[in-house]
Design a protein around this nucleic acid. Structure first.
Lengths: 158, 158
DNA sequence: TCCAATCGTCAGCAAAGCTGATTGACAGTG
DNA sequence: CACTGTCAATCAGCTTTGCTGACGATTGGA
């Protein structure tokens, strides 16, 4: 499954000054632990992402979900297949546009989110961000948000 | 070549509060642009990483480089192959341990770093981190560094 | 001298995701 | 209504990627 090169990346000293490397190191670390935590429920964190999107924005098409998570349309097919098999989501038909599904969260899906997945991922964040003070965490979130939004904007002109 | 799902990831609103997603979004964005910038010189940013490590820490074995960059030993073989073909690094023999190479930066490699690669990557960082004030940038670097180091430490006890 | 560990290499494997084509549905045009 | 272009979902096939396990050579400690 996972399979990662070396568990932890020492981050070569000089590269530690390069934001790019730091970002990747930390992101890899978080992803790794998230995946690890979700392994018990046989889910990838991408699957978790799908559930969260549906929970917060209601039913939508596969491609719409993919757009929000940066997942390819053909990859979405497979992801939804699995989630549907587990009864976590259902493929309803969109009443307006019959080409599209209206993927919706089932009761079981919602329950799993609330009872298991949210607590699980929260705990992982807790552990990874442990060394930070609450203020630092919110600063981090705010700054990252700014960068992410800025990047999107500058994409518009290309 | 690259091929990425959707160019820019809108980051679903609720997930924007999840540090994990934000980190991944931003890291992906930076990596994408870095790769793009280096494409002109037919290099991946991993290759750039190898050169930087050698520049800052001197000659070392392939596996040692891999350890510092979280790259698998067997993948390193191929990376060094390419860099050697371009004359950017040389496979010297380690005098002490004859199993290992002593990969060293050539003059051409050092020149490429100084004249082209460093400026190039600096410019990318400049563009991506554009929306941030200088203070925010240093705060970001400091916080990410703390998280990265913290993660390494907690790995020791597992 | 023996044995476990390490370096570099390679062949084979498995995961991941993308491309392009196909089918059915939609929307606007004339 | 037929005609055209677009879009959702699907699928087969391909490429990229990186890992696994095995190998010979070498090291270093018992």
């Amino acid at each position: 499954m996972g399979g990662n090169a070396h568990e932890s990346a020492p981050t070569a000293r000089v590269l530690a000054e390069s934001t790019g490397w730091l970002l990747n190191d930390v992101a890899r670390e978080v992803t790794l632990r998230l995946e690890e935590a979700l392994k018990g429920d046989d889910l990838r964190w991408r699957d978790y992402g799908v559930l969260v999107v549906l929970e917060s924005a209601g039913p939508m098409s596969q491609q719409e979900i993919g757009r929000r998570l940066a997942v390819d349309r053909s990859t979405m097919v497979h992801i939804i297949d699995l989630l549907e098999q587990r009864g976590l989501v259902a493929r309803g038909r969109d009443r307006v546009d019959r080409r599209a599904y209206a993927i919706e969260l089932t009761g079981a899906g919602r329950a799993l989110l609330v009872d298991v997945l949210h607590p699980l991922t929260a705990e992982v964040h807790e552990r990874v961000l442990g060394p930070l003070t609450p203020e630092e965490r919110s600063v981090l979130t705010r700054i990252l948000g700014r960068v992410a939004r800025g990047a999107d904007e500058s994409n518009l002109r290309e």
